[in-house]
């Protein structure tokens, strides 16, 4: 009985932390007020303050975790909504995201390998360019650590959002379709949000690239990892 109450409390606390951080984000739109970051920090501080282990938290958290799978399935819908752009620009978008997937996997893997990190860390950095739920599934199936992957995904997302004006200037990325593919392939949903604020076509392309990239990376990551490691 006690365990059930603890689990329910953890679920309730997670929902409350999310809703609270969402409200904060609506009032103060900043990179550091991104809801996942604020909610995660609030929960971590709470756990540390009351000396609660991650395992105890996860007795409730695992029920939220279980919905990650269907949440990824749901991404089929925005892809379907943008099917007209997808059809018209299929070849450039597909080629661009495939190049992005290859570059992202191999550069992350090789650089961390050359720096001498353990294979567990390397497996965790490999899927960093794709949206968190998919990255975590890839990490899980190749032997990475899911929470570490979540951090690398955040680095790719938030980092990409911060450095993209510089990257675009120095790489001569001026076309809206090219920018959208670049943002979606490199910085998933966070990049897509930044694209959406600038231009709705760029944002839509970024959405499509983000979802395609998730599919492509999950298909090629296991094989490419074996090949390069």
């Amino acid at each position: 009985m006690n365990a059930v109450i603890v689990a329910l409390f953890m679920i309730g606390f997670t929902i409350a932390a999310y809703i609270g951080s969402l409200r904060l984000y609506r009032k103060h739109r900043r990179i550091y007020t991104t809801p996942v970051i604020v909610a995660t920090l609030v929960i971590i501080v709470f756990l540390l303050l009351f000396n609660i282990s991650y395992e105890t938290y996860m007795t409730g958290g695992k029920w939220v975790d279980r919905l990650l799978g269907p949440a990824v399935v749901a991404l089929a819908y925005p892809l379907y909504q943008h099917r007209d752009i997808l059809r018209k620009m299929l070849v450039p978008i597909m080629t661009g995201t495939t190049v992005g997937a290859l570059v992202g996997i191999s550069s992350g893997l090789l650089l961390s390998k050359w720096a001498g990190f353990s294979s567990q860390i390397i497996y965790s950095i490999v899927p960093k360019s794709v949206t968190t739920p998919v990255a975590m599934s890839i990490s899980e199936s190749t032997g990475g650590v899911m929470p570490l992957t979540a951090v690398f995904v955040m680095i790719a997302g938030i980092g990409g959002m911060l450095i993209h004006p510089l990257v675009m200037r120095y790489s001569g990325l001026t076309h809206r379709i090219g920018r959208g593919v670049g943002m979606g392939s490199a910085s998933h949903a966070i990049g897509t949000a930044a694209s959406m604020e600038r231009d709705s076509l760029e944002g839509s392309i970024s959405t499509v690239a983000m979802i395609l990239s998730a599919v492509i990376v999950s298909i090629i990551a296991p094989g490419l990892t074996l090949l390069l490691l």
């Binding site: 992005g100 992202g104 950095i125 980092g159 450095i163 990257v167 675009m168 790489s171 090219g178 670049g182």
Partner: peptide
């Protein structure tokens, strides 16, 4: 170092994926 690697790799993906697409379009 991992943070630097993550950032560098992200910039590379953005530039390459974007440029290839832009060239084709």
């Amino acid at each position: 170092l991992l943070i630097g690697i993550g950032l560098f790799s992200t910039a590379l993906v953005m530039a390459m994926a974007g440029r290839v697409t832009q060239w084709m379009v």
